[in-house]
Structures are given as C-alpha cells and as structure tokens.
C-alpha cells in the first residue's frame, strides 16, 4: 500500500522582485487508490504544489517534506522522482523538437522500468491506449506536442499516464481547454489507469465539471498557499454554488 505524504510544505520562487513565498504550510496525505481533488482560485499555488512534487528547479522547498512510502522526495532529482512512481500531467505540456512520440514513450518506459519493454506487447499497448484516447495513429510519428492542439496535448499526457503506470499522478488542470467530448475521453483514460494500476490521484482543477467523470474521494480547497478546507465530494458542489468568495475574504491574495 503506497502513500504520498506532504507535510507542512513551504515553497518559494525567485522572481525579479525577489523571493516570493507561495506555499505556506501544505499538509496532505494521499493513499494508493484515492482520488483527491484540489480546487482553488487562480494564483493560489496549485501548480506550484504540482511542480514542487515533480521537482521543477524553479521552486524551492524552504521547509517541510514530501514522503513517498516514507522516502524523502525533495532530495531526489526530477527523473528519480518519476522512477520512484510520481507522475505529473502538466497544465502546459511543452513541445520537444526532434523527438517523436514513439521514441519518447519507449525511452521513458525504459527509464522508468529500468529495462526496455518487450517490443511486441509494448507496441500493442501503445496502439491500444492511443485508440482508447481517440488519438490518430499519425501522432506516434509526430514530435512530442509539436503543433498539437491544447486538447491533443492533454490526451498525450494521459497516454503517458496510462503507459508509464505511476503510483501517484498529479493532474494539473487536465480538464482546461477540453470540450465535453474530449473531457469524457480524457476522464475515461484516467479512470482506466486507476482501475488497472490502483494509482492515487491528485486532481487539480478550477471547475467541478471534470468531477462528474472522475469522482473524488476527497475535496480540498486551496487558498493562498495552503489548504483552507477539506471534505468529501459534496464540498465540490458547494464550491460550484458559492464560488471561492467566502475563503478569500480573510486572505490577502492579490
């Protein structure tokens, strides 16, 4: 039984105006098989949390810790974290010139598993996942994210999620920019990955609409760098009706 624990995490970023504190004491525990939704207004620090877990070099953990099955994640390199079982589906996936999706997936799979996948079953798996996500075969030979539409980039993230089989996935606004059909397809992909591997999910979103397709076990309201309130799925409905106003009153955002 895997567990990802975030303990009193404080994170800052260097800006032109100096050091800016963004995360101000985040506490969160995700068990294997659980889905946690994080909802919060723009600029509250949701992506910062995601990037910090993945190890983006711009974000400095000033104090606190992130433990994966008891092991400190903060001291691991970015690639070590991925090999340890963490996965970040990015809000804005970048284009990688010169590297085809096929080549990229195979290289990543080899890196994660520590050995090259058996060629035949691998090709079959890739094809199957692409079909499930309604990605045209031609994407396999295109350079990663190059010229992909917003929705195609998001599918490509979920394709990787399905194939790399992490223990924990952080989905940073995977729903933004998707139309209803694409949202369904992508959500199915996430649910399929969870059914297959029992991974734990940290689902970051602005809107409740994705929660109709991916049902959270817990909902956390993220405001001004920390979790302001938590509850079950019903909290999402309340947010839908009331917005974040009631949380913003006391905070000094903006």
């Amino acid at each position: 039984m895997s567990v990802l624990e975030i303990k009193d995490l404080h994170v800052s970023v260097e800006t032109d105006q100096g050091t800016k504190q963004i995360l101000k004491g985040v506490n969160l525990t995700i068990n294997e098989g659980e889905i946690h939704a994080i909802m919060g207004p723009n600029g509250s620090g949701k992506s910062t949390l995601a990037y910090t877990i993945a190890g983006h070099p711009k974000y400095h953990a000033d104090s606190g810790s992130i433990l994966l099955d008891g092991e400190e994640v903060l001291t691991m390199t970015v690639d070590q974290r991925a090999r340890a079982g963490l996965f970040l589906a990015m809000q804005y996936p970048v284009e990688i010139p010169g590297v085809t999706v096929t080549n990229f997936l195979r290289t990543a799979k080899t890196a994660i598993d520590g050995e090259a996948p058996a060629i035949r079953s691998w090709i079959k798996d890739v094809r199957q996942s692409m079909t499930n996500l309604r990605m045209d075969k031609s994407f396999a030979e295109r350079n990663v994210n190059e010229g992909f539409s917003g929705g195609e980039k998001k599918r490509n993230e979920i394709l990787q999620l399905e194939l790399l089989k992490p223990k924990f996935a952080i989905l940073d606004e995977t729903d933004s920019g998707l139309d209803v059909d694409a949202l369904k397809i992508v959500s199915e992909g996430v649910n399929r990955a969870k059914a297959n591997t029992g991974l734990g999910i940290l689902l970051i979103t602005h809107y409740t609409r994705i929660l109709r397709y991916i049902e959270p076990d817990f909902v956390h309201v993220f405001v001004n760098g920390r979790i302001a309130e938590q509850g079950g799925p019903e909290l999402a409905d309340r947010l839908e009706d009331e917005g974040y106003d009631r949380f913003l009153v006391d905070s000094n955002v903006g």
Binding site: D79, V94, I96, P97, G98, V99, A108
Partner: peptide, 30 residues
C-alpha cells in the same frame, strides 16, 4: 528551435536522465 530547461524538465519528469534527455533530442533531430 531551442532545447531549453522546460523541455529538459518535461523529459526528466518522465524518468529520463538529463544526459539521456539531451542525447534523445539531438539524436532524434539529426
């Protein structure tokens, strides 16, 4: 086009080491 730190981060976040990431990009390109 440029190979920059964001691309490096993306590849590393999929388990690929920094050296391998750079090689992957250049090898693929050439």
């Amino acid at each position: 086009g440029r190979f920059d730190d964001e691309q490096l981060f993306y590849l590393q976040s999929r388990g690929i080491t920094e050296d391998e990431a750079r090689r992957l990009v250049v090898r693929g390109f050439l």
